Amino acid sequence: MLKDPWFTIEKIDQKTFAISEYGHWEKVHAFLLLGEEKAVLIDTGLGIDHMKRVTDQLTEKPIDVITTHVHADHIGSHGEFERIYVHQDDKDWLVNGIGGLSIAQIRKDIGRDITKPTPVSFDPKTYQPFQGEPAGLLEEGDVIDLGNRALTIYHTPGHSPGHINIFDQTNGYLFTGDLLYDQTPVYAHYPSTSPADLCRSLEKIAEIPSVTKIYGSHNTLGLDPKILMEAKQAVQYLRKNDLIRFGTGTHEFDGFSVHF
């Protein structure tokens, strides 16, 4: 498999690749999905190094970037690609700046706990998240045809207003962004988040049929779909105990946790 000084490239199958940044504490994943006619890149990572260097080596097909949500660790290399898509409810953050997070906090988070050498072009003190106009907007139920591969968009707010999940109908892969992953808490504790929306979104994705694998944007690459039922039961517990609100802290379940 392709070797790179910053990114780790892992083949999920012949037409699906994870592009990961394990040298950063957030352990961020982006995903390149190849179809017969074009490719989709789900998120573009932290922006510490240039992701297009990797995608250029993996495919010659035209690439559409689908944004799970507009936080700095998911839009880092957006400026390297021509066609960027985002949900309407996160468009303002993409164009005008990320809501609820100061640039000082973003720079602190981007520059800490790095365990691999970074390129000389990276300076956390001057780091600036991407801002720009998208090529188009995504909505609930949109189907993106890559040619012999179809992706369905689910609007899953909570972590951000315009957060989305992407379901690969062809393979049963569900790309959950920051709605669901393991090891570290899924969060909805900033003023720009919504605990209630996050829980409704978890219930929503638990009803998607024929999911074969969960691919969150952080930590373990590839989770068993049984975590969807655990998430659904977790929401029932949180609702029953009146915990779906700001300030109730971290709640741990079997395989994942949430922080409100």
Rank of each mutant, 00 (worst) to 15 (best):
E26Q: 13
H50N: 09
P195Y: 04
G97K: 03
R149E: 08
V65Q: 08
R107M: 06
A231D: 10
I166R: 01
Q128H: 11
F81Q: 06
A39Y: 05
A39S: 15
D109Y: 12
G216K: 09
G79C: 06
A135C: 11
G79L: 07
E10P: 00
L58A: 06
D178V: 11
G162C: 08
D224H: 14
I227R: 07
L33F: 14
D142H: 14
I166N: 02
D113V: 02
Y127F: 15
D90R: 08
F260N: 05
P225R: 10
G35K: 10
L32S: 05
I244A: 10
P134S: 10
E36R: 12
S201N: 08
K213A: 14
F253R: 11
E230W: 06
E26V: 02
R83T: 11
K3N: 12
L228Q: 10
W93F: 10
Y181K: 04
I114A: 04
T8M: 03
I106H: 01
Y127G: 06
L180R: 06
I106E: 03
K226R: 13
L2C: 00
L58V: 06
F253A: 05
R239W: 05
I9Q: 02
G172N: 08
W25Y: 14
L33D: 02
I214V: 12
T248V: 03
T68M: 12
D43A: 12
I98C: 03
R149L: 08
L46V: 01
L41S: 07
L137S: 04
G136V: 05
A234M: 11
W25L: 09
G76E: 02
A30D: 08
Y154N: 00
G255R: 03
Q183M: 12
L94G: 04
V65W: 02
F175A: 02
F130W: 07
T220I: 13
P117C: 07
F130A: 06
K204N: 09
K108M: 10
S77N: 10
T152M: 09
I166Y: 02
Y154D: 00
P124I: 05
Y154R: 02
P185R: 07
P195S: 07
L137K: 02
A234Y: 04
D4W: 03
G172C: 02
D182S: 15
G111M: 06
K91L: 13
S121F: 07
A72Y: 15
T67G: 11
